[in-house]
Design a protein around this nucleic acid. Structure first.
Length: 474
RNA sequence: GCUUCCUUAGCUCAGUCGGUUAGAGCAUCUGACUGUUAAUCAGGGGGUCCUAGGUUCAAGUCCUAGAGGGAGCGCCA
């Protein structure tokens, strides 16, 4: 049998008049009593190749199983197309049907399928144009991430997925245990006895690789993590998953300005990568999912991100309120900003991405470096921390980053003030105890980047098998 | 977790004030058409109106509860 050619290559081929073999899944078949046209897709590209069937050589009976969804091998002669719409097509000489798809049962149709419906058949949705495009782009974004960090001298550092620490505070955790939940052994004071559990202590799935990432950065200099993360929050929104992938670079000797430059440069690199490598898929999404997509991607690459200290952000919001803008929630200095406030700043006031910095320390994590230089609110220093959140149009917070507090004493003071359980965390504190150094890093939700790059509306549609509260199908 | 909306044919949706036999487009099937490309044209088949109660002479329509889904908010990435 002739060697298989992938459809993306077949469509570019100049071997007119030569035999060719393609294999894939039938998107549609149409025609009249003389000729039948099969649109075939093999996933290598969003495009289909047209197989032209002369019904005198292939009687209708033989073509019966060639229905939408069926898998076939088509051998024929590559010819210049007589019709408009494609440069080349294949005149069929030999047909093999690998697998049929009963038209009364196969759930995918040529058109008119909602995202909600496709989510119920997530095992088949990669065969649709939209999800094919999304998952090809997902691959390319993963490659972009590895390429960016590798080319900038970062090391890919693997942090554990199972952890015994519960102090990061990033969210509720999924417990990991081999204990018999129907017959739990209790200690004398009524607590669960984990001493006979698999790890001999209580363990969970990680909510962040950052703390372990800091161990890597304070030895290798520049590291990044890229792996799955798990949060058991009961979050029901189009921007949250219980299982998602996170990118967390951590860099020794990096200050807040360098951190912001990294965040901006990294995101722009990824967006540009998509425009350079995924244009066919982006054009499809631009046409059918989000009309402004490509323009928005280009504008993000072209614009400089705003650097906005929290205190200045509050001032702008209060000015907006004085000018008659209505917000549901208040925003006094010290309040955490609500989505509506972030959206106002990004989408209405600045109309470009904003990196918000120097937040009040009370609303941020314990490990963020306290701002001693910043004059801060009412001219008093030490009230803010060097956090840097990148806020994007449509999707809100895409990155949360900060300079880390490198002083052992200051870090311990925060930990004690917040009553954070650190008894099993001496390994983390050792980074500050031995050769402590200034360092910084950020976390970027991979699926949120995917939302932005694809224009998709719901985070459940940019990961093949989404896990959300009450849903763990497939 | 809170608020709110939705659930009618395989899919996307109409369905008026509670009133005769529940409709459309697409899909599918049959036929027509000498090259289509979201093909087109003609015709046919296809219904547990989410589930369980209730109100009523009469419920897809009103009420209660439950299930599933979406959106907004909170938490965050």
């Amino acid at each position: 049998m002739l060697q298989r050619t992938e459809i993306k290559d077949a469509l570019q081929s100049k071997q007119i008049g030569q035999p060719i073999n393609v294999r894939g899944w039938v998107r549609s078949r149409r025609g009249n009593k003389n000729v039948s046209f099969i649109a075939l897709n093999d996933g290598s590209t969003i495009k289909t190749i047209q197989i032209v069937v002369d019904l005198e050589k292939f009687p209708e009976e033989q073509l019966k199983p060639v229905t939408t969804g069926a898998c076939i091998s088509a051998t024929g002669i590559l010819v210049e197309s007589q019709g408009s719409g494609q440069a080349v097509e294949i005149q069929l000489t030999e047909l093999v049907v690998y697998g049929t798809a009963d038209v009364d049962q196969y759930p995918l149709q040529k058109k008119g399928l909602s995202m909600e419906y496709l989510r119920t058949i997530a095992h088949l949705r990669p065969r649709t144009n939209t999800f094919g495009a999304v998952f090809r782009i997902r691959h390319h974004m993963a490659m972009a991430i590895h390429t960016y960090f590798h080319e900038h001298g970062y090391f890919y550092f693997h942090t554990p997925l199972i952890t015994a620490s519960d102090c990061e505070g990033a969210g509720q955790m999924f417990q990991v245990t081999t204990k018999n939940l129907y017959n739990l052994k209790k200690t004398e004071d009524g607590k669960i006895d984990y001493s006979d559990d698999f790890f001999g202590k209580q363990t969970s799935l990680t909510v962040s690789g950052q703390l372990e990432g800091e161990l890597g950065a304070t030895a290798l200099g520049k590291i990044y993590t890229f792996g799955p993360t798990f949060r058991a929050e009961n979050s029901n929104t189009p921007r949250h998953l219980a299982e998602f992938w996170m990118i967390e670079p951590e860099v020794a000797f990096m200050d807040i300005d360098e951190l912001m430059a990294l965040e901006e440069d990294f995101i722009k690199f990824c967006v540009k990568w998509a425009l350079d490598n995924c244009m066919d898929d982006l054009e499809f999404l631009n046409q059918y999912v989000d009309k402004g997509l490509i323009e928005r991607l280009r504008s993000v690459i072209a614009s400089d991100f705003v650097h906005l200290p929290y205190t200045e952000g509050i001032r702008i919001l209060q000015e907006a309120i004085q000018n008659g803008h209505k917000f549901e929630f208040p925003c006094e200095w010290g309040d955490d900003l609500a989505s509506e406030h972030e959206r106002y700043l990004v989408e209405e006031h600045f109309k470009r991405p904003v990196i918000m910095t120097n937040y009040p320390k009370a609303i941020k994590a314990f490990y963020m470096k306290i701002d001693e230089q910043e004059s801060g609110y009412n001219g008093k220093s030490g009230q803010t921390v060097q956090g840097t959140d990148v806020l994007f149009p449509q999707i809100g917070e895409i990155i949360g980053g900060s300079v880390r507090e490198e002083s052992y004493d200051k870090l311990m003071a925060e930990i004690e003030a917040r009553h954070i359980p650190m008894k099993d965390m001496t390994w983390y504190l050792d980074t500050r105890k031995y050769g402590s150094c200034p360092h910084a890093g950020f976390g970027l939700g991979f699926e949120r980047l995917m939302l932005f790059v694809t224009g998709m509306q719901n985070i459940r549609d940019v990961i093949p098998f989404p896990r959300t509260p009450k849903t763990a199908e497939f």
